Simulated assay, not measured.
Amino acid sequence: MTKSGTSDTPEKISLAPGERPTLKTIARLSGLAVPTVSRALADAPDIRKNTKERVRDIAKQIGYRPNRAGVRLRTGRTNVISIVMSTEHDMMNHTARLISSVASALRGTQYHMIITPYFPDEDPMVPIRYIVETGSADGLIINQIEPHDPRVDYLMDHKFPFVTHGRTGACERHAYFDYDNTSYGALAVKALAGRGRKHIAMLAPPKNQTYAQNMIDGATRTAAEFGVRFSVIEGANAHQDNPVIEQAMIPIFKQPDRPDGLIAPSIGGCVTMISTVERMGFVLEQDFDVVAKEAITFLRRFRSGILVVEEDIDQAGNFLARALMHRINAPTEPPMQELDRPDDTAFRAD
């Protein structure tokens, strides 16, 4: 707010001694009705932008926080969204960046974020059922998506708002954001073939997940087009611990027809593959080349010769948050969907 005829500097607002910051307080200070204040804080589409900004500024200055129990009684909502994630993700992949970008997209809205973890040996349906049955969140973000994902079927059957980081076989029916891993697999093989590599091996994500199947499919088809050999490293996947990956790599590179091109879907897997092969005496850019995907700038600082494709997790997190709020607030409208497609300009050369 500004004083008429003076400057554009916002007027400082303070509470009277003993006064609590409530909706009534904001209504008094703004000159608006309590229902209007409530709708402005809820980002209602029929409230003007400048009104929302004025109400939020007052709320911030007086330290207003909604009473969550009261909000739930009045609206049936918690103003909470949950990211449901497996604990098996190491922090060198995109998990931390995704959480940060979702949180940034929710900043300034009525929604707060919680993380609901589940363990690799736990049924991934357990946290989903708990949240839906207890109503402890208004919507969910889930990842590690499978083509026929029981979590998605359950949430759709219960008409519970959700968005997936990845696509199912029925993705046209639900909100999602996905990176085009089919294109990534194809681009990786093309780049390695362009360097004269004849036997390309991929450390794939878990094969039950959609993005792993997409990545393998793109690489397989492109390898056939370029007349090079392609294989998936057996005995390990990109989500497993370093010793498991190391033990899978060593016998492969002891063979006479060892790979001379490697594809990694993440930072951790890439570092483990390169360090394992280098300890065996092989030299990057001479004996082998590597294409890897990362969400944070790291790999070319580790080895400058890595062919790096950057995945924009900030874009993913921002879209996932907006798509979930859209599902919560406009459940009858078509779900928001986006596919991030890399192209030949995707390789970064720092």
Score class of each variant (00 low, 15 high):
L41C: 06
S101W: 04
Y111D: 03
A295D: 10
T22A: 10
V189R: 05
A292H: 03
E234P: 03
I115M: 12
D180S: 11
S304L: 07
M202G: 02
R151L: 09
H165G: 05
Q286N: 13
S30F: 00
V132S: 08
P124D: 12
Y211T: 10
L339S: 14
P124K: 05
L284R: 13
C171V: 08
F160E: 01
P243S: 05
K52W: 06
D121Q: 14
S38P: 06
F288I: 08
D241C: 03
D312W: 03
M249N: 02
E146R: 14
F253Q: 07
K49R: 14
R48Y: 02
S231M: 12
N79Y: 13
E53I: 10
E172V: 08
I115N: 02
I128F: 05
F226P: 00
R107M: 13
R129Y: 03
V37C: 06
Y130S: 15
D46Y: 07
D340E: 10
L262N: 01
Y184G: 10
D123L: 03
I267A: 00
R74A: 15
H199M: 09
T222F: 00
D287C: 10
R65E: 14
S100M: 12
T222A: 06
N181H: 15
P342E: 03
I145P: 02
V228R: 00
L299G: 00
T95K: 06
F347S: 04
M280C: 07
T25P: 07
T22K: 01
F282T: 04
S4Y: 12
E225A: 12
G305D: 11
P127T: 06
P147I: 01
I313C: 10
G317E: 09
F288Y: 15
Y154I: 06
V244N: 02
Q247A: 15
Y176H: 14
E310R: 12
Y130I: 01
V228K: 02
L307E: 09
K293T: 13
